[in-house]
């Protein structure tokens, strides 16, 4: 579905991505893991058009997306739930969800999807009229995911959905990612929480200082010694 080839990004003099290639097959969960500054967020931002790559190709279903405006990429069914959630704190839950569906015009479908995300996150329904900025971190993360789903994405990209959340909430978020995937949405997940990510991923890539150094099915990477020592904190 999504195919990245030889993607390069420069920030001023810094070569943040140095020829990254990977694939996200339809219907799967793919994860990019790696340390701080490895280029995970930059990869997602390049796909969604917030960062302009200096080289390489980004293809969705065989069509090039590089150079498109973010709004047109979202309209093609790719959405990013960004790092730090980036919900609109001064707007209510419902307004945030309405913004998630901004690209759509089918009122009935939007209403239907709203009920669907409320079913997925009952807590959000209780908070419908509440300003998002006054909600807890976990609720805000739920809202960020729910808002992304409101665009009815084919490919949902998530940047560090577990960041700064209590373990119980993290578990719940990962359960929900699995549910969303089971309902047919392809997922590209970026995580520092390598263990949790690899456990649910069909396929994983390890990113190190702008390069992909390892790849394989999630379970295999989880068992790989190099991954275990570098990302799972398990000594030899």
């Amino acid at each position: 579905m999504l195919r990245i080839d030889d993607l390069s990004v420069h920030y001023g003099g810094i070569h943040a991505l140095q020829g990254v290639s990977f694939e996200v097959p339809e219907g799967k969960i793919v994860t990019l893991i790696g340390a701080n500054g490895a280029g995970k967020s930059t990869t997602l931002k390049s796909i969604i058009g917030l960062v302009k790559p200096s080289g390489g190709t980004i293809q969705l279903g065989g069509q090039s997306m590089r150079g498109l405006d973010t709004k047109d990429i979202v309209r093609r069914g790719v959405v990013l739930a960004p790092e730090g959630r980036r919900i609109f704190p001064n707007l209510t839950t419902e307004e945030n969800l309405a913004l998630g569906a901004f690209a759509r015009n089918d009122k009935a479908g939007i209403e239907q999807d709203k009920l669907k995300v409320f079913k997925l996150f009952p807590r959000l329904e209780e908070r419908r009229k509440q300003k998002a900025g006054t909600m807890s971190g976990g609720e805000q993360q739920m809202l960020a995911v729910a808002r992304a789903l409101m665009s009815r994405p084919k490919l949902l990209m998530m940047d560090e959905p577990s960041l700064g959340l209590a373990p119980l909430i993290v578990k719940m978020i990962f359960e929900i990612i699995k549910t969303i995937n089971a309902e047919g949405t392809t997922i590209l997940l970026v995580e520092q929480n390598a263990k949790a990510a690899l456990e649910i991923a069909d396929f994983g890539y390890v990113l190190e200082t702008g390069r992909i150094t390892l790849s394989g099915p999630g379970k295999e990477l989880l068992a790989d010694d190099r991954v275990r020592s570098a990302y799972l904190g398990e000594g030899q």
């Binding site: 959405v79 609109f88 704190p89 307004e95 901004f102 808002r147």
Partner: peptide
């Protein structure tokens, strides 16, 4: 809808882009 877009842009420009707002 336009007003909602305006409020979103005024809060967070990049997040507004992610919502497919022009």
């Amino acid at each position: 809808r336009t007003g909602l877009a305006m409020r979103a842009v005024s809060t967070d420009l990049d997040a507004a882009r992610l919502m497919a707002i022009d």
